[in-house]
Simulated scan of single mutants.
Amino acid sequence: MDHLSEIISKCFHDSEIAKLFSCKKTKTAALIYNVLTPNIEAEMLADLKSFENIKTRSPMFSLVIDETTDVTATSTLAVVTKFYSEKTLQVKTKFLTLVDLKGSSAQALFDALSDALNNANLNIKDAIGFGADTTNVMFGEQGGMLALLPK
């Protein structure tokens, strides 16, 4: 964005608005975090919740998760959801959230996932599918995360 501000004023040199345009990384980040992200999230969640289970009147969706560690050694859990959209009449795969983890145990992952779903007003019991890598913490017979998920 630092360079784009300069390019806009040069491309539209006859425009007073373009000459005054200034939107560098701080302002761009604020727009993304405070304006675009909440609207995109709300729109996606409304779409996800539009297709309900007839019996329970709750949305149906699948979850795909993966744990990762960034260069600062902070572990995070990426949560992606897959659902049928009544709006577009197709199955969609959408990023739901990225959660900082407090540990690497199956219980820590389960708690982080549950909190993320609660923040999105989704219930883990409404998930009809689950996907993850095949590590022991996810699918281990003795205390893997899969064992913690409601059946």
Rank of each mutant, 00 (worst) to 15 (best):
A78V: 06
F12Y: 14
T134E: 12
M1P: 11
N34A: 04
E6K: 13
L4S: 03
G103T: 13
S50T: 00
V71I: 12
A120T: 06
V71M: 10
I7P: 01
S114D: 15
K102V: 10
T26Y: 10
I65D: 11
S5N: 04
S104G: 14
Y33A: 09
M1D: 09
N136Q: 13
D126F: 03
K24H: 14
E86Y: 02
K94F: 02
D2G: 12
S62W: 00
M145S: 06
L117W: 02
L63A: 02
A132P: 13
N118H: 08
L113E: 01
D126H: 14
S22P: 04
T37S: 15
L89Y: 13
H3Q: 13
Y33R: 15
D66E: 08
A120F: 10
M44G: 09
D111S: 08
C23F: 15
A147R: 10
L113S: 01
S50H: 00
K125A: 13
A29F: 03
D115H: 02
V99K: 06
E16W: 00
F61N: 00
V71H: 01
E43F: 15
K125P: 04
T97Q: 05
L4H: 12
E41M: 07
N121W: 02
G103E: 10
A108N: 15
K102L: 04
A73W: 04
E16R: 12
S105A: 08
K19G: 14
L45S: 07
P150S: 06
K92T: 10
K55A: 08
T88E: 01
T68W: 00
K55N: 09
M44S: 06
T56F: 02
G140V: 06
V99A: 05
E43I: 12
S104V: 05
T134W: 05
Q90H: 09
Q107H: 10
A29N: 14
K92W: 03
F139D: 03
T74Y: 02
F83K: 03
D111C: 03
H3T: 07
V71F: 08
T68H: 01
F61W: 07
F12Q: 04
C11W: 08
P150Y: 10
D133K: 01
S50C: 01
I128H: 08
T56V: 07
K24V: 11
L20N: 12
M44Q: 04
F83V: 00
A108I: 01
N119H: 04
T69Y: 02
F51E: 01
T74W: 01
G140F: 05
T74L: 06
F51M: 03
L4V: 08
T88Y: 09
E141Q: 13
V35I: 08
T81G: 06
N123Q: 11
M138A: 07
I54A: 14
L63F: 01
K10L: 13
T26W: 00
D133N: 10
L148Q: 08
A112F: 00
F61G: 02
M145N: 09
L77I: 03
L148S: 07
A29V: 11
K27A: 10
K87I: 11
S114L: 11
F130Y: 15
I124S: 06
N136Y: 06
D14H: 09
